[in-house]
Amino acid sequence: MGTVAALFRYPVKGFTPEERDELVVQPDGRIEGDRVLAFRFASAVEPERVDGLDHWPKSQGLALMDVPSLARLRLAYDAESRRLRITDGSRVLVDAGLDPDGRREIEAAVTDAVTAGPDARRLRGAGRLPLRLVGDGANARFQDRARGYISLHTSASVAAIDSLVDVPVDDRRFRSNIVVSGVPAWDELTWGGVVRIGAVRFVVSEPIRRCTAIMANPDSGERDANLLRILTTQFDQAAPTLGVLLLPVEGGGVIRVGDHVEVE
């Protein structure tokens, strides 16, 4: 039916994706190495409990929906050495490990970057500062939903939006783990039951309702297109929706670029 065109994981929530040739799907329904770190507000460094699971609401830390300027920063994470490097253009903001001193250096650099930019007001509320870098750099914990989930959209759906706006719209705005080509626009919203990607079978859980994060230009960090309105007015959606959430049927496995995608 379709083919995996691209795969992404996001080591630090809200920051630069890593494009990968393959991803490891964990049995718990998350991608290995995905959202293993996050910047949390001072008042929210412990998780909430939802249905017996840890949950870290994105509203209580740095996220693109409230801090679009994060998109212009470029992040590289070395999972083996547990080291973060963040740049803004040609300027290195920080290059440090996850030891206590390194974390303090990273927290200070990111705080300075946000407070010096257009989204500084987001850090002025009570309980916001100091920012804290949480996570061990290995375990996927900071997905938007307590259950985790793996996200997928089709390239044709993104192309349909791109054709209606004057600014470039590509897959990066939607921050999915899996991008599928070779199927019609919005086809993923009709999938039900089980979808097989390579050798891994997934249950299609629900469509992804989108937030203002998709309005952030992934190069400039500016909100340059009201894509939420485009989705509801131009595509007759009751709520702005693109892509679906998946959970592995059993055991997880490895998915690769070029894998065949089929709805069973």
Rank of each mutant, 00 (worst) to 15 (best):
V134E: 02
D34P: 11
I230E: 15
R141W: 05
A71L: 06
G52M: 07
R209E: 15
F41A: 04
D170K: 00
A213H: 08
L84A: 02
N177G: 11
Q234W: 10
G14R: 04
G148I: 06
G61A: 00
R30K: 15
T241Q: 08
G148S: 10
V36I: 14
L247H: 14
Q143A: 13
R209P: 09
I106S: 01
R35Y: 13
M215S: 14
P17Q: 08
T232P: 01
L93R: 08
R122F: 10
R122Y: 09
T115C: 03
P130M: 05
T232M: 08
I86G: 01
P57F: 02
M215Q: 15
A239N: 10
D112W: 07
A185R: 03
V36C: 12
G29E: 00
A239R: 14
V183E: 07
L75R: 03
R35M: 09
R122S: 09
S151V: 01
R122E: 14
E80W: 10
I255G: 05
D88L: 10
L129V: 08
A79C: 02
S43E: 14
L70C: 11
V204P: 03
L84C: 07
R30T: 15
D54E: 15
G182S: 12
P100E: 10
P47M: 09
R85Y: 01
T111M: 02
T232G: 02
V203F: 05
S81E: 15
G221E: 07
A216I: 05
G2W: 06
M65K: 15
S157R: 04
L164P: 08
G198I: 03
R40H: 04
L64K: 11
I106M: 01
G243H: 02
R103L: 06
H260R: 15
G243I: 00
D136T: 05
I197N: 01
I255N: 03
D28M: 03
D259N: 07
R175W: 14
R147Y: 11
A109V: 08
R223Q: 12
D259H: 08
V257W: 06
R209T: 15
